[in-house]
């Protein structure tokens, strides 16, 4: 149990795909125009990560080394296509908002990266937990960037859903919804996360020094 928690923490926090490894920047910048878009993209990627990680780990002894990348891509694209079909059928609004970025999960470097670096070397259970951790880390990052961009750029929180909160008296800054706003927001969010991380490391260091 402890081992799984360790894997989860490692994948989601210590090696957070977005904030630490800076992987998967294309969807991070493109779809985070709102909190809901960021969240749904994150969940779609998480599902693909868990499924493909488990299957690749199960097949790791069967897949010949020379065609492993091809095999991983085929497995990943099958799950991505399945996820896309399900989203199109049951969540048409999400399909319209994310559009081309759902099929593009196939070439998301987090998914192939975890397959090659982790799933192909660990047991299916560990690979599934690693997929869950990476996916959660990615989802939280996307939701954070999406929240900031939607709040500043459209002046709403969860706009267009039954839970919509509109901010009165303020004029939204369109800039944050546009692509340039994505880069600026991501930069500031990473800076804030790094500052928090450094502060917590410093606290831990001082604690150890006292002992």
């Amino acid at each position: 149990m402890k081992k799984y928690l360790e894997i989860l923490k490692d994948a989601a926090i210590t090696k957070n795909p977005t904030f630490v490894q800076l992987l998967g920047m294309c969807p991070t910048l493109a779809v985070t125009t709102s909190l809901l878009n960021g969240l749904s993209m994150g969940v779609a990627v998480t599902v693909v990560l868990i499924c493909s990680g488990t299957i690749i780990s199960l097949l790791r002894r069967l897949i010949p080394d020379s065609v492993r990348i091809a095999s991983y891509i085929v497995i990943i694209s099958a799950f991505v296509t399945a996820v896309q079909l399900v989203i199109r059928a049951y969540l048409p609004a999400v399909d319209a908002a994310l559009g081309i970025f759902i099929p593009l999960i196939v070439v998301n470097c987090i998914v192939l990266g975890r397959a090659e670096a982790f799933a192909s070397k660990h047991t299916p259970g560990e690979a599934a937990v690693d997929g869950l951790g990476s996916g959660l880390g990615f989802t939280v990052a996307l939701a954070l960037v999406g929240f900031v961009r939607e709040f500043l750029g459209s002046g709403t929180i969860l706009g267009g859903t039954p839970l919509e909160l509109a901010i009165p008296f303020a004029k939204p800054m369109l800039f944050f919804v546009l692509p340039a706003g994505a880069f600026v927001t991501l930069g500031f969010v990473i800076a804030a996360v790094n500052a928090l991380r450094r502060a917590s490391e410093k606290r831990r260091f001082e604690k150890e020094k006292k002992l």
Partner: peptide, 23 residues
């Protein structure tokens, strides 16, 4: 090698076809 890859492709295609059929 070729047969393994073929098998993986076949199973994946089957999975996609099944999901497509349902949705």
């Amino acid at each position: 090698t070729a047969l393994t890859l073929l098998l993986i492709c076949g199973v994946c295609a089957g999975l996609v076809a099944a999901v497509y059929h349902v949705t």
